[in-house]
Amino acid sequence: MVGDTERTATQSGAGAGTATAGVTFQPQASEDDAPASPPAVEIRNVSLWYGSQQALGNVSLDIPRNRVTALIGPSGCGKSTLLRCMNRMNDLIDGVRIEGEVFIDGEDIYGAEVDPSDVRRVVGMVFQRPNPFPKSIYDNVAFGARINGYKGDMDGLVEESLRRAALWDEVKDDLKKSGLALSGGQQQRLCIARAIAVNPEIVLMDEPCSALDPIATQRIEDLMQDLASDYTIVVVTHNMQQAARVSHRTAFMLAGDDLVGRLIEFEDTDRIFLNPGDERTEQYITGRFG
């Protein structure tokens, strides 16, 4: 599974023409124009337990605003778990205990007064497998807006969201069609449209391309770059080439023998891939484990 994804992505990278030893780099925002604005998400000393098994150990990092941040690491390193801490999706699993703080715009989303539903409105999410509702394309996009009491022009919002997700031209003539009738890549873009229709500030993406073919993957990756001008994007990926292609900053996570996932290194993406500071990061990105 892991091997397949990586191989596919390598090929698509090679197809794009700028392959260097299997890893493709694209010019990214360099350190110079790193944003001066405060970070979008500040994660402070977060630890998490599933029952008695600890899964995250004391993770702290700042997610920069209006950038793509990638979380990479081998299976079981806790990268998806960390992602789901940022919109409190972990709250839905029985027996999960979380310590530490996650600040968005200076507010702790785990604060006593905070409703998780409100957090998830501000922090959207796109999942590993495309999961459109068994409803029409239109209703899929409008769902979150209706739930959250959108007051404006719904048709306009649906169109705008689909345009932002680069899907409008393909579906504008059959918005009544079931979302399930679309291809896998289209479904995933529909899910992105659904997420941005509630006007979130942050969009979390949990291996959004792992179920897609290389061409569909390419489109989603392009989309991530476009969306980064308006949203803060955090993407979990198995695929190092993808992280290298789309992200500005990369966090490398690793679980030790105790199965507790920890943050090993968090740096500009170029740095992580060209000149990693930690020996384990280097081992991982050169394919020696994971």
Binding site: N87, M89, L92, S117, D118, R120, R121, G124, M125, F127, R129, N131, P132, F133, P134, F143, G144, I147, N148, C191, R194, A195, A197, V198
Partner: peptide, 15 residues
């Protein structure tokens, strides 16, 4: 009903 769909609904802020 797949858990995916529940997750998707929660992720846009549903109760």
């Amino acid at each position: 009903v797949p858990q995916d769909l529940r997750d998707a609904a929660y992720a846009v802020g549903s109760t």
